[in-house]
Write a protein that binds this DNA or RNA. Structure first.
Lengths: 108, 108
DNA sequence: TGTATATGTAACCTGTGAGTTACGCAAATT
DNA sequence: AATTTGCGTAACTCACAGGTTACATATACA
């Protein structure tokens, strides 16, 4: 795995990574303490962490030989911005319907 | 491609599918009119549409031999629910910080 | 100083998502 | 009735994400 520069959409597409984010929302954890929760090798977890870090979902604080992973908002923000566009779509669709209904009732 | 039952996270991980959603947010389109916007074969587009449909991102209205694709809210809702959990996380984190700051200023 | 611990990286294997072409079928058109 | 159009599906190829094991490195501890 050379590049590991997946975008935010690809990052959350993996169930293991979503599970990691969920665990980190409860408490910040080291790579090993994270790995205890998964049925995969520690290097595999390490790679996922790298992916999450590169996409801005976590920050990492090195304390001695330990790496503490902390949830970070940046990655989530990109997703929210994407969704906000469609929120607006549903909103305006509803508004058009309301406008149509108002127009109808005015004509009566 | 046998199963094509990807979850909402996998569905939006593909750039082409996100582009399709964007196009459909402007206007509902048939498979062919959609395909004109992409540098891929029509069967490829047809498969993406099936994936989007199965995940609840679009509904389809058959008119004669044409299939009209219309944006649908269901898929987006699942993503919003997922994000809402973390919204709450950031919210509560901010509240804790505020509480801490208030406590400090009261002590002075 | 030697050993145990926490982690990263390289090399490799494998499953599968995403593309292709070829074909089939029903609806529209002539 | 014959042809064209719009679309779905089957069979195949290929790239690559996600897993593995083996090894390297730096910190903590005895």
């Amino acid at each position: 795995m050379e590049l590991q520069r997946l975008d935010v959409f690809q990052v959350i597409a993996d169930p293991s990574r979503r599970h990691m984010l969920q665990l980190l929302s409860k408490d910040s954890l080291t790579i090993n303490s994270l790995a205890e929760n998964f049925d995969m090798s520690r290097p595999a977890v390490s790679k996922h962490i790298k992916v999450l870090y590169n996409a801005g979902f976590i920050s990492i604080q090195d304390i001695g030989r330990e790496r503490h992973c902390i949830l970070k908002q940046d990655g989530f923000k990109q997703l929210q911005e994407w969704l906000a566009y469609y929120d607006n779509f549903w909103g305006s669709k509803l508004q058009k319907l309301e406008a149509l209904l108002n127009e109808r009732s005015n004509k009566q």
